[in-house]
Design a protein around this nucleic acid. Sequence first.
DNA 1: AAGTGTAATTAGAATAATTCTAAATTAATT
DNA 2: AATTAATTTAGAATTATTCTAATTACACTT
Lengths: 146, 146
Amino acid sequence: MCMQLNPKYKTIFKEALEISSLKPTKQREHIFSLILNKKDHPTADEIFTRSRETMPSISLATVYNCLETLVESGLIRQVNFERESTRYCPNLKPHAHFHCKKTGAICDVDLPVSIFNSLKKHLPKNFQPEQIDINFNGSIHKTKNH
Amino acid sequence: MCMQLNPKYKTIFKEALEISSLKPTKQREHIFSLILNKKDHPTADEIFTRSRETMPSISLATVYNCLETLVESGLIRQVNFERESTRYCPNLKPHAHFHCKKTGAICDVDLPVSIFNSLKKHLPKNFQPEQIDINFNGSIHKTKNH
DNA sequence: AAGTGTAATTAGAATAATTCTAAATTAATT
DNA sequence: AATTAATTTAGAATTATTCTAATTACACTT
């Protein structure tokens, strides 16, 4: 029983793949919907485990293949922290990531586009950026509620 | 024949290690000076190869160990692009990195501290960043000189 | 100078994430 | 239905890095 994308995302999904002449296969849709429906930052292996719950025949290689095509199509983003496993993120708004060294938690940090523009201004004219990754490393303190 | 650090860096080197009660060994100094003297962004393996030219007995594990202690001591920085080998950077000024997808070139991009401060302002109060990594991915175009 | 203890180095084995390979399956097109 | 190209699959291969256990180096006592 495969996960279903809602109609809006189904269209986005199909069109994004079509642009690169890639096929909207069951496996690709399944993985895309898994990532969309649980907005965390899973690794390929976590996605593999989740996938098998509802699509037991899927292979790890396929998970890697699908993730690659989804990234290529711009439907999801890769996030890397140091040399840890690559993680995948469905948030396509301009944002950064915060990585808590103690707990391993990863949080999206929304940023105004103006920051990205201002970063670009510091590049030499012949540097053409396609992607800007901003990663914070540190710790998240407990807030006191008393 | 080991590489020699100039007196200024020798002091910085010794003091930085001492703070963490680490010893200023031949190997650590050798690797530090190699990275300082050629300001690129070498991988552990490239550093290993360079090291052996003047210190043939050094092992790859030692290179990894030394790099780890140098990073811990704040003498060098790690740079990661996607899942490529970790690279090492002697530039301790606030800066970002630009990674050219075509040629693989990696360039430092100097940034004013104000940008880092402004980034920090977008974090929730209980998020305490220790390190901010900013990576541009894209391409470097040839400039026309005519 | 010899002995002791701790830290660092070393070679090689082990690990783990990812990529590759080649065969089988699926989907789209004639 | 036949053809073609793309995709999926299982398992092997790769590769950067870490681990392990033995050796060596060094600082500090006797």
